[in-house]
Amino acid sequence: MLRFILSRIAVLIPTFVGVTLVAFLFIRLLPGDPVEMMAGERGTSPERHAELMARFGFDRPWWEQYLAFLGNVLQGDLGNSIVTKAPVLSEFLTLFPATLELSICAILFAIVFGLPAGVLAASRRGTIFDHGVMAVTLTGYSMPIFWWGLLLIILFSGILGWTPVSGRIDLLYFFEPVTGFMLIDSLLSDQDGAFMSAFSHLVLPTIVLGTIPLAVIARQTRSAMLEVLSEDYVRTARAKGLPTRRVVGLHAFRNALIPVVTTIGLQTGVLLAGAILTETIFSWPGVGKWLIDSIFRRDYPSVQGGLLLIASVVMIVNLLVDLTYGLIDPRIRHGR
């Protein structure tokens, strides 16, 4: 098992270096530069432009800049934002809990509804329920996030007036962040109604962000279950006279988990990409919205640092997923 873990970590190193390069190049491939963006409509003289670019070190050849960036990253320094002058890492860490809270809620939402839907659809293959799940998930999967978010806002916030449109909590409430998770902090604050307010702010973004992962998880679970249900050992389980619940929910499900957990891991990556859009729609103060803002400002350090950090989070999630394989499947644990 230890060898298994170490081998997975070793694979991450080249991936990490690759990601630094992509993060570095991405923002520089966009037209315009930070100085131009800051000057805005007024514009700036070529001399002043060159001077400012030199001050930030953007006049050096790109590979020189990249090596400097890589060197700093390896020392844990992601540089400072050229807009706010604050360290990129600390800006990211302040905003990240908001994104994390939203992402966790969204993936939980996707798992809680997607897994049972997939399992039930598979065990009732060909029934109306099965066809229903397939149709609904296909629709959910094809739904553009922006359009879906607006649709929900119009219905639940506009027409029904049930949920707020933006932010994480009503401005009425104020308390110091303890965990950075609004749901938990609002409970700890002991203020009446704070939790409900945080909750109602979270509902729509969670649904919007969780829809695609839900659809993918449900469909993947269904097909993994269908494959496993025709295995010999499932017949053995039935030959013991076990109730269907146990045959499907334990004997088959346990074996279907590997591909499903893989999907959940991959969807977490997709989720962080989706978070950028969702946060923009709901003015959710997380790293997604911050990243978009930084891109528009051509804030090179913020964008490359932010991308790198998000990619690192995805890599860590995937590592954790790999490690759970060993827990699920004894054959992997025993190195076979």
Partner: peptide
């Protein structure tokens, strides 16, 4: 179900794939 596995039981052609690999 009360009969199967208790009063009547069956063993199969492929022993290797008839046991659940996860348990």
């Amino acid at each position: 179900r009360a009969l199967t596995g208790a009063d009547m039981a069956m063993i199969f052609q492929e022993p290797m794939s008839s046991l659940n690999p996860c348990f």
